[in-house]
Amino acid sequence: MTTRATRAPRVRPERPAPTLRERLFGGGAAGEPSRFERALYHLVLIASCIVLVGPFLMVISASLKESGQLFEYPPRWLPFPPYLGQYEKLLTDSAFPRWMFNTLFVGTIVTVAKVFLDSMAGYAFAKLHFVGRNVFFLLMIAMLLVPYGAIILPLYTVSHALGIHDTYLALILPPLCNPLGVFLMRQVISMLPRDLENAARLDGVSEFGIYRRIVLPLIKPSLVVLAIITFTDMYMSFIWPLVAVRDTDLQVLTVGVASMRNMTSVNFSLWSAAAVLGMVPLALAFFLFQRQFQARSIAGALKQ
């Protein structure tokens, strides 16, 4: 055994000279933002917040004014006392509640049906073997390539032929055919390890049971994403609902609000109030769904 004294000395490199970044912004160990950098980040964040939130504030502010106050100079950001008459008018003396109901009704049905159908179709495409599986899947992908505008007219003709024109069905059925969800679900489900299903099969679970008890819980975050995409899509959709129904009782929010300018003269304050109220359910939906984003990581299923 050599003792410490007889061995060669240890190699002890100097601490490296500070880089330009460190000299300019301070900060020490790798990756730690300095106080200056942090301030910079916040500045950028605050600026973008103003740009993004500003228009919302303007709409909210407009909705709280009488139409006469709208073009006052200098403009008042927060009218005091706020004028709630526009909201009152919307809720009691317009078709707004009906439009809102239609949008939520159609949106909810389509979302629920789509999450269910797309995940089942995705499971079949990902895990089951059947004749024509790849052909069907390619056909579905091909549908993604067709621009929406190109199928509006055929859709209109078909809905007439089916006799569902001017009914809720005309609003509900066509969006169900959007293949994006099936594609998404197939990708997610095919990532699940095969032995997980195998274990379930041996444990006595039926094929549908595997879908319901194993697959669904594990892809919950993706289901939530799909639900949010579908619901917002439905909430915002304008062209097809405009074409599909004429009956004012069946009109959805987007179409209804757009038609408000024909009702009387254009009342921008009333319009703003409709926009604000229209945002509420979507915001609520986001907050409710947000917590569902987490699911158990599938990391625990397998060996390392």
């Binding site: 390890p193 032995d195 195998n198 594990l218 699911a295 158990r296 060996k303």
Partner: peptide, 13 residues
């Protein structure tokens, strides 16, 4: 028959 899988295949949820 019951089986222990090489990669465990535990139900993560």
């Amino acid at each position: 028959v019951s089986m222990v899988f090489q990669n465990y295949a535990l139900y993560p949820h």
